[in-house]
Design a protein around this nucleic acid. Sequence first.
DNA 1: ACAAGTCTGTTGTTTTTCCAACGGAAAAGG
DNA 2: CCTTTTCCGTTGGAAAAACAACAGACTTGT
Lengths: 221, 221
Amino acid sequence: MKKYVPLLKRTKLFSGAGDDDILSMLNCLNATVRAYNKGEYAFRQGGYIRDLMILAEGRLHIQKEDYWGNLNILNEIRPGEMFGEAYIVPNSGALMNDVIATEASTVLFFDIDRILTACPSACPFHTQLLKNMFYTISEKNKGLVQKLSYMSARSTREKLLSYLSDEAKRQNSSSFSIPFNRQQLADFLSVDRSAMSGELCKLRDEGLLGFHKSEFTLYEV
Amino acid sequence: MKKYVPLLKRTKLFSGAGDDDILSMLNCLNATVRAYNKGEYAFRQGGYIRDLMILAEGRLHIQKEDYWGNLNILNEIRPGEMFGEAYIVPNSGALMNDVIATEASTVLFFDIDRILTACPSACPFHTQLLKNMFYTISEKNKGLVQKLSYMSARSTREKLLSYLSDEAKRQNSSSFSIPFNRQQLADFLSVDRSAMSGELCKLRDEGLLGFHKSEFTLYEV
DNA sequence: ACAAGTCTGTTGTTTTTCCAACGGAAAAGG
DNA sequence: CCTTTTCCGTTGGAAAAACAACAGACTTGT
C-alpha cells in the first residue's frame, strides 16, 4: 500500500498531506486495492457502491448504454481522480452507469463511513481531508455543468468547437491532445461519428483548426 | 431570520436539526437574506460567489446564453434547495452561468468559510451539517449525471421520453406535472420548441402519453 | 512477415431537426 | 370587459444529422 503514497500526495483529495498523514489515513480509512484488466467492467449498472474510490493507474470510462445499444461516455477518469462520490449517500440506490477499464487499471477503495465519521484524535489530517473532498466534489460538479454546456450546443459543429476550445484553455495551449479516439469523442459528445468526422474535416478546411490523430491545434481566425 | 426556521428544517442541509440547532447555526454561519423580483438576475456570468445559498421562496433558473443568443436552462432551483456549491472552492474563477429569478424569490446566504471551519464547541450540529452538505452535493452530482443522460439521447423524441419517464418515477405516479412551460422544457432539453411540440403531439397520437398544459400522463403501451 | 482487426475519412441517401411565420386559445393586466 | 401579451400547436422549406456502406492506413497479434 506504501507504493501509492507518492501518487496520493498528488491527488486533490490528499492535497497538503505529508507521507505520515497519508499512511495513517490509509489505515484509518481501511484502504484496499483492486486491479482490472483492459476492457473489464469495474462496476455494472444495477450494482451497489459503498466506497469512495481513487484511480491509481490506467483509465476508466463511466458510460451508459441505452435500450437500443447507443453508447454514451458520461465521464473519463484519469489516475489520481476520485470517483463514486455520487453514491455515498445512504440509500442512494443502484448504480445507473457502467464503469469500464479502457486500460489495465488499479483502483484504491476507501471506506466512506470512516471518512465522514471524524476521528479527530487519531488523524490530524482528517479535517483537511473533509475539506479537500468537498472541494473535489465541487469541482467535479462544475465539470459536469461544463459538459452539460457542450451537450447543450445545438449542432455537432458547436459541440466540437466548445469542447475543443475548453480543452485548449484547460491545457493552456492552442496545441493539445485529447484522450479520445474518434468514436470515443463522438460518444462523449453524443453525436454520430461519421458526421463528426466530416465536420472536423470541414473545420480543418476552413482553417479553424488542424489535427493529427488525437493531437489538435486551434488557429486564430 | 427566525421565520425561515420551519423552511430550513425541511431542507436537506439542515435535515435532523432542531429549532435551537438552526437558530445557533444561522448565527454561526453569518446568514443573510436577499429578495429578488421576478425576472431579476441574482448573479451574472463573470461574477464571483463566496457564499453558499439556499432558496427560501420563489424559483430560480441557472442558465447560459451563448454567443448566438441560444438560451439553455442548465438547472432549476426550487425552495429549500441549495446552490452555488460549485464555486466555493478557493480560486474557482468567475461564474460561468446566469442565475435568474423566474418568480419573486428570497435567497439565504451562508458564509462558506464558517461552514468548513469547524466550531465544535459552539455548534453541536456542525458535524452533521457537514455530512448533510456532502450528501446534498452528492445528490446534485447524481442529478447532473441524470440530466446528462437526457441530453445524450440522440433525438428529441428520446429526450422527451427519458425525461418524462424519469419524472414519473421521481414523482411516483404516471400522472405528474412538470415545472416548465413548452419553451422552458425545450430549453431544458436543448431542442427546438416547435419541433418538440410536434413530437409531443405525435407521442400523444401514438397513445404513449397525454397532457394538458404542464400536466402529463404516461400510458403503458 | 502476414493476417486479422481497428481506426478514420468519404460518399450518398434517408430522416430529423431547425427556423420562420401564423392563428387561435388562454392568461394577464388595466 | 376589453386589450395586450403570452403560450401552444401547426405548417412548409432549408439545413443538418443520422445511417449504412466502403476503402485505405494503421495496429495488433501470432
